[in-house]
Design a protein around this nucleic acid. Structure first.
Lengths: 172, 172
DNA sequence: TATTGTTATACTCTATAACTATA
DNA sequence: TATAGTTATAGAGTATAACAATA
């Protein structure tokens, strides 16, 4: 408690601060908090970028995961997407109403739905993906290509580390 | 659109997937989404770690920012913390009721409150900070010290890049 | 006239439990 | 008996607007 924290590259030249000059204090060395600061900014951009499409970020994520995993069931999508299965119902309803996705009863297990995007859904997803990537383009431009890869790699490894530990002993 | 994405270190050996094997598709190259995957896991851990204290993560963040910025006003704290000023009233109320923080009218501008932690608030914040750091310890253990520093540095630089661009042209 | 803190209100998300049809 | 999807409902979180005190 009395030992000083090691001075990191991230706060050399003084204590780490927000863009408006607020000191981060104990939050400076919290990975989760540092990610959230960045996501607060990116999230606002994504909401604005998706507004013309009339869909929310979570709905787009749902579309992208369906597209990448044809025949995906709602229960699995809910678990992986970090939302409740009941919350997903409204999202899939909305996608069906707009003709972007379809539910078909699974022939293997008739309790579950096989989800798939329609061609219109595929097309819209590609458009929205481009809009979403544009919100992060400044990061790709401001970092070197190698640094961008390093960021992806470190986020991936951190995620796998935590997921593996959770698998042994869930947090909830 | 027809150009294949460059194969990155983060998804070498095949498409990037969640811990449960779901393909990420277009989300694989989204910095915001990759951070959110990790935060979904960390967030559940932090909520569990804070439950014994009877406080939520946002309340702890508020305490930490007050501690690092003595005399902070509610309006500035709300702006920086990414929440509405009206939402902050309930949080500060709760901190005052539990004797963890105090409001004093600013002598410079009597419209604004100067926020400060009480000694009890300082002590609890230190305890909660240790509990929060413990939720991320496996990442610090699983990555090398240099990699941890690189992760902090890249998150910091990405944040500053986006914040600087937002300052020129806000997204909302 | 603009800003800080507050209150009230409405809206959205989320969490929980129950219900059905299948297994 | 357990699971996938659905529905209903209640609680928490968030956003908006209005107000009093102060600048």
């Amino acid at each position: 408690m009395s030992k000083p924290l090691p001075r990191s590259a991230a706060d050399k030249g003084g204590e780490a601060r927000t863009a408006d000059g607020l000191a981060l204090g104990l939050m400076a060395r919290r990975i989760g908090f540092r990610m959230r600061l960045l996501q607060n900014l990116l999230g606002a951009r994504v909401v604005a970028a998706f507004a013309p499409f009339g869909l929310r970020p979570g709905t787009f994520t749902t579309m992208a995961l369906i597209a990448a995993n044809p025949g995906l069931s709602q229960i699995r999508l809910a678990r992986e997407g970090g939302l409740d299965k009941s919350a997903l119902v409204a999202i899939v309803d909305q996608l069906e109403e707009r003709g972007l996705a379809v539910r078909t009863r699974s022939v293997i297990d008739r309790r579950s739905n096989s989800l798939a995007l329609t061609p219109a859904g595929e097309a819209l997803m590609q458009e929205m993906s481009a809009a979403a990537q544009a919100t992060e383009q400044c990061i790709r431009d401001g970092l070197s290509p190698a640094e961008v890869e390093t960021l992806f790699e470190l986020l991936e490894r951190a995620y796998q580390i935590v997921a593996r530990e959770d698998a042994r002993e869930p947090p909830g």
